[in-house]
Amino acid sequence: MRAEAAFATTRAEGRAALVGYLPAGFPTLADSIKAVDIMIDHGADLIELGLPYSDPVMDGPAIQRAADQALAAGFRTRQVFEVTEAVAGRVPILVMTYWNLVERYGVDRFARDFKAAGGAGLITPDLIPDEAGEWIAASDEHDLDRVFLVAPSSTEERIASTVAACRGFVYAQSVMGVTGARAATSAAAPELVRRTRAHTDLPVGVGLGVRSGDQAAEIAAYGDAVIVGSAIVNCYLDSEDVPAGHQRLAALTADLAAGVRR
């Protein structure tokens, strides 16, 4: 299932999509599968599985800690395909990954194995289209979405060339900074979405900083998708045990899902 399937539904319903992010293998391999099911059960329209990496320069403390925990427990790249296979079918599953892990696995081999597991595509935070020749070829070959990022600092030319390389949706990094839940979302986000729309009909997802249904509703007013990561990870980091984390995640997802439906 590709991203456009989810956006066809949300557009028909006249609302934004809710995208939930969780590192695969966090809080444990089995519980990351369970967590994704919880998110889907409570209204997530797309899922982003993070691939834990030793040097995540885009991520703030919460996602760093989650990735460290998964790696310390022995998480291997290939296990992201197990998680994908276990949760695929109900909503599109994308993997968000730093580029070295894909390059190391083999770009075409990664695309093939991810497609076979039922994956929709990749979000690549440290890969710009200028460096993505091999990935563009592999994603064409295996019919996968490819989501690149635009940022408030992007020039018009770069927004145009970046969205031209995207398939599925465009990821608008709404604040200049790393991932992490923030009390207030960025004022730069609506402007960035407006500038991005001038260059593409693809849905524009807005990420970085969302932690509540109210914030989700705010972003849903101008974005096509609300992307939530650190707040989801915090459900587990802030809980005494995994079952408590699952409960928090269910409540948070329901709140966010209500937010995008306001």
């Binding site: 320069v57 710009i128 460096e131 990022l149």
Partner: peptide, 12 residues
């Protein structure tokens, strides 16, 4: 070489 960084840094 090249640039394997977030788009947010490209302008800088």
């Amino acid at each position: 070489g090249g640039r394997f960084v977030p788009e947010a840094l490209i302008a800088a």
